[in-house]
Design a protein around this nucleic acid. Structure first.
Length: 796
RNA sequence: GCCGAAGUGGCGGAAUUGGCAGACGCGCCGGACUCAAAAUCCGGUUCCCUUCGGGGAGUGUGGGUUCAAGUCCCACCUUCGGCACCA
């Protein structure tokens, strides 16, 4: 048999798959019965701001292994691919390279597609999409209109995160440690009119419906923390001089008797009024100005500052008059922007009280019981909290309340390369949606798309000026574009019906394919894309556009691939590009090596020696299977010898790892063990069976060489062949290796028949000379027998 | 500070329900083939001691539960990730 040449083998089968459209899956005809065993396998779509790197090879190979596995275990598998081509990543790449973003992404898409085909991923190429194409974003706009009609999106002036480098607004999810996630510049606060999705209305759904998800617990925990649901109470404090009530939110109503002062955020709307009527109004205004100019990061890290207003609030439980301060450690956008300060039981309040010499009053003791709290004294603090809120409720001064850390999703971007928001502003009619039939609102060409604070689309005067759809008077188009995460919040639905030009997707088809059964992607999206997509799906459900409320039933978060200790990214690049690896070692060796490094849900370091080892392994398989194909007799019933048993055990292990355990590196080791056994007994009657099974089991990982060897073994179309089945009767041996311990230490081991009774096992254990040497004639006080495993003799 | 994950040979890692620690691979050592090398094949490889029979230690540290602990419990150390004035 000739030498293994990866290039020849891989080119041959890729052409065959391409020509036979091997991995395309048709949609069911309207009214036709649905396949009960559909499976939607999806990985997060790539940004075509660059080409593929080794990290992509990991994600898409993971998806590929599952695609083949599910296909061959009888499912009808949808496995599409597309490109997240709108948005900042592409635009920034374009700015750097001095080209139009469209030119960059379209060139990168060609390159990515070619690499994907060279790696041989089983993709349904008939469903390919790019989010920057009008055929796609037309429907992003259409969904926007539905959200607008349903009141799920709105415009308001708000303090937003402004990146001075990217010259655009960022969502909270895109700010890390006060810096822009993309470029690292320090984010500034700006007050701007912005578009928002009312995601906070779904805070509870996003938490409660997690129970339907088969996701890693750590991702759910991250989302739970991100949403940050806190239960407590809203309590009214009276300011007599102004004849007003100010609500505060607290999670500790049990400490109400310990409130010794009161704080308003500098941005609180009442601060102005207080300053007007206060003798030290100037001082207050100066403080508010200073606080507003202070970067958020410094506001959080620095020592606490504040100013007394001269006013007092009345504590509703004991009528105590406590001083009202303005301090920037209280945030306007959480709770009510006002707090009751309990320095005895809150670290921040304590720090402030100590600095400004305010009283500290203890109201919960070491036993967690209320003290110095009138009729509530003596109650355990949780009961006390309940009782106090109830008491307040009876007097109309308080009620249970819930507060969230999650904010509404601001998605306006003052940038060029994004989906235009289909809105027209009219002096008479206000905010008017573009009628459905006028979609898409095409992104116009502009001379200069560089960000400079005002949206680049504002320059396209001809495009901006448009009659108001309602009254026909001259209006102006919205010149902001949508955050790229809007595009990726519904793309998985478009794949179900990607060429539909009447609707974003056919409802029946989406209901059939959805939810995604197995979603794979990076954990960096745990609190961003994965929350947004869940939110979208819930709104679509309520708009009667989908029967499903969750988009991704199962999620697998893959680890990062590092090279030389650094995370590989579009920016860093990396020397081992997928194209080079395929050229040097072949696609199959590359695919195997990235999965063999270690558990796919943990970070991993890429090394070249791994792929060399895989190349060796494949050559070995090639040689051994070739020899068997040439020499071993065909047909015949496999015997029940050691090799046959090994084959069945391997099938069981690989099947369990891929299906139930979601472990992708151990199946490779299992097949290697089988290959090692086969190489030791190439003349075994089960050699052909072992060779065929080896090829069949490795197929999801190394589909090209598997297909070639399958053909040599006299079969065809392995990609459609049923997955091998382990025969349970071969999984158990007639004998097993009995381990004999003395006082828990292994002293001997020998094979015994499985049906030997326990007392006989113990007898044989005691007979062993090695065991007797350690018994020293001592008295056996206890005997432990674990069936089919071991005997432990405990001596005095 | 809070939340979460992890810590096993020279390295990546395995050990699924508390039952033989180190599967599989990399690297390294030895051998075969070769004029030589590459490739390939065979053997060895946790550490320490050894009279070569074997003995002892060992899964971040210290305790505990158990006949038996990498696995369970308590305390701590380290690393990584997320959040961070969220009342």
């Amino acid at each position: 048999m000739d030498r293994y040449d990866a290039q020849t083998v891989e080119t041959k089968w890729q052409r065959i798959w391409d020509e036979s459209r091997a991995f395309e899956v048709p949609n069911p005809e309207p009214g036709a019965p649905r396949n009960e065993r559909k499976s939607y396998v999806l990985e997060m779509l790539p940004y075509p701001s660059g080409t593929l790197h080794i990290g992509h090879v990991l994600v898409y190979t993971l998806g590929d292994v599952l695609t083949h596995f599910y296909r061959r275990t009888g499912s009808e598998v949808l496995r599409p691919m597309g490109y997240d081509s709108f948005g900042l990543p592409a635009e920034n790449a374009a700015l750097k390279e001095g080209e139009h973003p469209r030119a960059i992404v379209e060139r990168n898409i060609v390159s990515i597609r070619r690499t994907m085909k060279r790696i041989g991923w089983a993709i349904d190429w008939s469903r390919e999409l790019s989010t920057h194409e009008p055929e796609y974003y037309r429907w992003t706009q259409w969904l926007f209109l539905k959200f607008f009609e349903g009141g799920h999106t709105y415009r308001k002036a708000a303090l937003v995160n402004w990146c001075p480098n990217d010259q655009t607004v960022l969502a909270n999810e895109q700010v890390k440690n006060g810096r822009c996630e993309r470029c690292g510049y320090e984010v500034e606060a700006r007050k701007l009119e912005q578009w928002f999705f009312r995601i906070t209305a779904y805070a509870d759904s996003l938490i409660d419906e997690m129970k339907e998800l088969d996701w890693p617990e750590r991702v759910l925990t991250m989302q739970r923390n991100w949403i940050g649901r806190s239960e407590g109470a809203e309590i009214l404090f009276r300011v007599d001089e102004l004849d007003i009530d100010i609500p505060v939110f607290t999670t500790r109503p049990d400490t109400l008797y310990g409130a010794t002062f009161f704080v308003l955020a500098p941005e609180h709307p009442l601060v102005d009024r207080l300053a007007d009527q206060s003798p030290n109004g100037e001082e207050i205004r100066a403080y508010v100005r200073k606080a507003g100019a202070r970067p958020a990061e410094e506001r959080a890290a620095g020592t606490k500052t504040g100013v007394f207003t001269g006013f007092f609030a009345t504590n509703p439980v004991n009528d105590a008059r406590i001083p009202i301060w303005v301090a920037d450690y209280v945030l306007m956008d959480y709770g009510t922007g006002a707090i009751m300060a309990v320095p005895a039981h809150d670290d921040r309040d304590r720090e402030f009280a100590e600095r400004f010499d305010l009283p500290i009053k203890l109201v919960v003791d070491d036993e967690e019981k209320l003290v110095d709290s009138a009729q509530f004294s003596g109650l355990p603090h949780e009961e006390g909290a309940k009782a106090i809120v109830e008491w307040l409720g009876g007097r109309g001064r308080g009620q249970p309340a819930v507060s969230y850390r999650l904010r509404d999703w601001g998605y306006s971007r003052q940038r060029y390369w994004g989906c235009p928001i289909p809105i027209v502003y009219c002096d008479d009619c206000g905010i008017v949606p573009v009628p459905e039939e006028e979609l898409p609102v095409i992104l116009p060409e502009v001379e200069d798309y560089k960000p400079k604070g005002i949206p680049p689309l504002a320059q396209a005067e001809d495009w901006v000026r448009v009659p108001c759809p309602q009254c026909g008077k001259e209006g102006r188009r919205e010149v902001e574009t949508m955050d790229t995460f809007v595009d990726s919040s519904w793309y998985f639905l478009r794949y179900c019906d990607p060429h539909n030009d009447q609707a974003p997707y056919d409802r029946e088809l989406a209901d059939y394919w959805m939810p995604v059964d197995h979603y794979t992607g990076g954990l960096d999206h745990s609190t961003v894309h994965l929350i947004y997509a869940r939110y979208f799906q819930k709104v679509l459900n309520e708009l009667d556009l989908s029967v499903h409320r969750e988009p991704f039933k199962r999620f697998f978060g893959n680890g990062f691939v590092t090279q030389g200790g650094a995370k590989i990214s579009k920016r860093v690049g990396g020397s081992a590009t997928p194209d080079k690896l395929v050229e040097m070692y072949g696609a199959d060796a590359t695919r195997l090596s990235i999965l063999f490094i270690g558990p796919a849900d943990q970070d991993m370091e890429w090394t070249a020696s791994g792929v060399e080892g895989m190349q060796r392994f494949l050559r070995r398989v090639w040689r051994l299977v070739g020899e068997v194909a040439d020499n071993a007799p065909v047909g015949g019933t496999p015997d029940d010898g050691a090799l046959t048993r090994r084959v069945h055990r391997t099938i069981a292990r690989v099947t369990d790892d891929l299906g139930r355990r979601q472990q992708f590196h151990t199946p490779i080791a299992a097949v290697m063990e089988l290959v090692n056994d086969l190489s030791k007994s190439p003349d075994d009657p089960a050699a052909r069976f072992a060779a065929e099974t080896t090829v069949s089991l490795i197929q999801p990982y190394a589909p090209h060489i598997a297909e070639e060897l399958w053909e040599r073994l006299g079969h065809e179309r392995l990609w459609e062949a049923p997955w091998p089945q382990a025969d349970p009767s071969f999984l158990e041996d007639d004998t097993f290796e009995l381990v004999v311990q003395v006082n828990g230490k292994v002293r001997d081991r020998f094979r015994v028949p499985v049906d030997l009774p326990e007392d006989e096992l113990v007898a044989r254990a005691k007979e062993s000379p090695k065991v007797q040497a350690h018994l020293n004639g001592g008295e056996i006080r206890q005997t432990i027998v674990v069936p089919r495993r071991l005997v432990n003799l405990v001596v005095g």
